[in-house]
Every structure is written in structure tokens, then in C-alpha cells.
Computed example of a mutant assay.
Amino acid sequence: MRLVSHPVLCNYYVTYRCNASCSFCDIWEKPSPYITVENLRENLRDLKKLGVKVIDFTGGEPLLHRQLDLLLKEAKDHGMITTVTSNGLLYPKQAEKLRGLVDMLHFSLDSPDRDEHDQSRGVKCFDKVMESIAVAKSMGERPDIIFTVFEDNVHKIKQLWEEICIPNDLVLILNPVFEYDKVGAILSKEALKELLWWAKQKNVYLNEAFVQLRLDGGNHVDAPVCKAASTTVVISPENKLVLPCYHLGLKDFPIEGDLFNLYHSDEVQKLVALEGKLPACEGCVINCYMQPSFAVEMNKYWWKALPSTIKYNRMKGTWRQMVRF
């Protein structure tokens, strides 16, 4: 049963540029412009009309955008819940400008071991993450640690949780790696079962539906779980609407100041109707689109996701913002 029929999330790519070169991502290889404040203002007007509640300013590395603070202010002025995920390299210098503007601030950290983390990210950023945690906390911010889980680092969760998250009262977000277009990886059933144990621990968030979907073999085109195109509006740095999702990206449409009517156009809606049904959608487990998909349709994944969703919003206090919507 479909509970919500309109988009709830916008993945807004402020740039594809990145100052890291993570082994499980290829976005940093793309040439890219930066979005403009003017385009954002136009799009925010229409995102609100479409029913979007959450805007994720993403990349690339979003802090490379020199006007990120202005982008966040615009989003907040439109009543949006804002999220930003950073590798930490630029946060200490920009923290004051961003203060109070990011509802869900995530720092990426994939190992408690400096050399191991830096190697996976292709740049020395471990120390900057630790500095970023200290700076954010000193200003009253409540950042999370987002840990991308691979087969070879799942055993490091305990150390990172004990040495970094618990002492700093940080939520540890476990983000199971996914595979797309020969990038990324898959996790064994043993690793997935270990993640389910961690989901029950203090200050740990894992959407358990991610695990269930992987155990079920991912999205299946004959009975699609994925609702990427109808739940998530993807906007590129070139100010284009990307469909059916960023990772598949079959087609993009210039927005030209009228996102609302573009989204409801016949051509776009034909692609929306194909969400989860295209050949490339078979077996997909991409977290970026599955999380909102689980939230809008009552099925077994909705029920699997519910306890962890409640847990995170209680830990962070964001349930108050959700209730308003």
C-alpha cells in the first residue's frame, strides 16, 4: 500500500568535484560546474510545491562549493530539513559559516585506523575528521559518523564505536557498501548478520531493511521495491533533472526555471513509471534510493525500516521536525 505519492527527498548535487578519490566511488572523476544560488532559489520554490521535505546537498564534496552556507540558508528559509555529508577536509575552516544550518551533518569515517581510512579515501583526511568532530561539538553541533561497511572493515566497527563514537556521544551510521556499474562491492551473509547485531547497540543506526533487501537479492524488476524516481528528485550541477536516478542516469532534462511542470510532464512521468523495472534495476540495493523507497510504501521493508528510523530520530531529536510535516 502506497502511503506517500509525491517526492519526499531531493538529492541536490552542488558539484561532482571532490578533493578525495574514494575506491568505491567514481563521481570524483567527472568534470563539473557548481550550482548557482539563483537556480537553487527557483528550484526550491518548485521542490516545495512537489512536496519535498528533505534536501541533501551532496557531491562530490559539497564543502567545495564556496556558497554552501547561502544554499543551506535558502533551503532552511523554505522549511526544508537539510543534510550534508563531508570527508572533513574543509569543515574546520567553514564550520562557523555552516553553524546551525545543517540538520543532519555526517562525517565519513571508514576505519579507526588512520592509514587504513586514508588509503580507502585516496587522501589524508582521518586527522581532519577528528578535528571536524571537535570543532562541530565545540559549537553545539551534533554530527554523525557515517561508516561505509566493506567485507574487510566490518571487524573495525567495534573499535571505532568504542574509541570515537561513544566518548564523543556520536551516532554511528552503518552504510553497507553497494555495487553499481562495476564500482563498489557486495557483502557476505556473514557480514550482513554481524551488521544486524550492531543495529541493536547504543548510538548505532542501521536501516535493517538494507540488510533484508540484500538477503532477498535486491530489487526485482517483476515486483520492484525501488521507488527512486517518484520519491527522490535528483538535480545535477548543470541544473538538470536526472532520471530515473543518478546512478542509472538514463536521461536528464534542463530545468529552465520550471521544475514543477517539468516533473509532471509526460516525458518525465513515463520515466518515473519505469522506476525499478529497467534491466539495470535488477538486483539493485543502492541505499540512496532504497531509504526513501522504504518510507513511502507499507510492505515488509517498511516494517523492517521502522524501528531503526524511530531510533535515529529519537537519538537526534529530528522527530519534532518530521511531525511538523
Rank of each mutant, 00 (worst) to 15 (best):
H106F: 14
E141G: 06
D56I: 13
V233L: 11
G140K: 04
H6G: 08
W303G: 05
K300A: 08
Y301T: 07
G276W: 00
A305Y: 02
P33T: 06
F147V: 01
C165D: 11
K189I: 13
A209N: 06
K97Y: 14
K182E: 13
K49T: 12
S120F: 11
E42C: 09
P167W: 06
L160N: 02
R17G: 11
R214D: 08
I35L: 12
K277I: 00
S293G: 05
C125T: 14
R121V: 01
N219F: 07
M104H: 14
L101V: 10
M80E: 06
Y289D: 03
P33L: 09
S32R: 00
I310L: 14
S21E: 13
R314A: 15
T82N: 09
E275Q: 13
Q269G: 04
R114M: 11
T309Q: 11
E141F: 10
K97L: 15
L72K: 03
Y16M: 09
P279F: 01
E38Q: 13
Y16H: 10
N175F: 10
L71Q: 07
S230H: 06
G122H: 04
P224H: 00
C281I: 05
K202F: 07
P143R: 06
G51Y: 08
S308P: 08
L174P: 05
V221H: 04
K304P: 12
D266G: 05
M139S: 04
N87K: 04
I255G: 14
F253C: 02
S293V: 01
L271G: 02
K124F: 13
Q119L: 13
P176L: 05
D258C: 02
D169H: 13
E29K: 15
E238M: 09
F147D: 06
E116S: 15
K300H: 12
D110Y: 07
D77T: 03
I157D: 00
L262A: 04
H155G: 04
Q159G: 00
A229H: 02
L196F: 07
M139Y: 09
A75I: 03
R99Y: 15
V123C: 05
V268T: 09
D113V: 15
V268N: 12
V37G: 03
N43M: 08
N175I: 01
E141S: 09
A209L: 02
K202Q: 12
I173L: 14
T82A: 09
L278W: 00
Y312P: 07
D26E: 13
E61K: 03
S188Y: 05
F294V: 04
V268G: 10
T15F: 05
E194V: 14
K200R: 13
Q291K: 12
P167V: 08
V204W: 03
N219P: 01
E141N: 08
T82S: 09
L306I: 07
